[in-house]
Design a protein around this nucleic acid. Sequence first.
DNA 1: TATAATTTGCGAATCATTGGCAGAACCATG
DNA 2: CATGGTTCTGCCAATGATTCGCAAATTATA
Lengths: 127, 127
Amino acid sequence: MCAEYATRPREQIAQILRSERRYLSAAEVFQALQRARARVSLSTVYRTLDRLRAKGEASSRIDEQGEATYVICTTSHHHHAICRVCGHVEEVACDPMERFTEALKAYHGFELDAHAMEFFGRCARCR
Amino acid sequence: MCAEYATRPREQIAQILRSERRYLSAAEVFQALQRARARVSLSTVYRTLDRLRAKGEASSRIDEQGEATYVICTTSHHHHAICRVCGHVEEVACDPMERFTEALKAYHGFELDAHAMEFFGRCARCR
DNA sequence: TATAATTTGCGAATCATTGGCAGAACCATG
DNA sequence: CATGGTTCTGCCAATGATTCGCAAATTATA
Ligand SMILES: [Zn+2]
Ligand SMILES: [Zn+2]
Ligand SMILES: [Zn+2]
Ligand SMILES: [Zn+2]
């Protein structure tokens, strides 16, 4: 029990996420599937995206309209710089974070165990 | 035209947000209003919370269940450290941010114009 | 091919949030 | 303290993304 099946729909969905390096909603993935003549239901898209996130293979964020969006990314700790023009997602290391950790403890007595960051601007190509 | 009315419902909602220093959903604010015997509709709660956010008097975030939550905060640039135990929100200054700005430009050619950060952990009282 | 476990598709259900609109509240003015 | 124009509020229906339930299809294994 609890085995994992490698299925066609899952591979097709992952394929789309891998080719686009930007946050996509379930609806956008679904549309891309239809454009590629892949017959996958919207339900399966939702389930697969959530599964990728749970496995740590994708990162999710809620966009301005309140919709969940997903992007494939590495599992090591990093943050995302999102281009306002093309949506391109750049993975950013996070060394300077230690400064915040220190400041939080010194000034607020707050002990950090996690943090989230997002950067917005224009990527190298769009400048 | 376009004047602003100071009304009872708005004051009652702001009162609740001021007394609780943590992120509250519209439903939670509504329940608090009922507990205080204040007769305000859920619609008004939604409208007032969004209005506070638009005026910069409150900050909003989407919680783990996908619901919008709000907290009163100052207008100057800062970030939030959220206690995992009691939900207390601490405002955190953001000087070390310049490091990220530099790194993004140097390593990724990415030009920053905005960023978002959230910190999670345990506040001084809950440690 | 036979079998059991897992996944899929479909449609219905959920549920936070928004929209429309008639009436109530607000506030400046006389 | 009345009047009148503007702004808010409450009610309730509509929206729309996401989730659920379940029978049928797919996968893995022998
Ligand atoms: Zn770009
Ligand atoms: Zn980090
Ligand atoms: Zn705490
Ligand atoms: Zn900052």
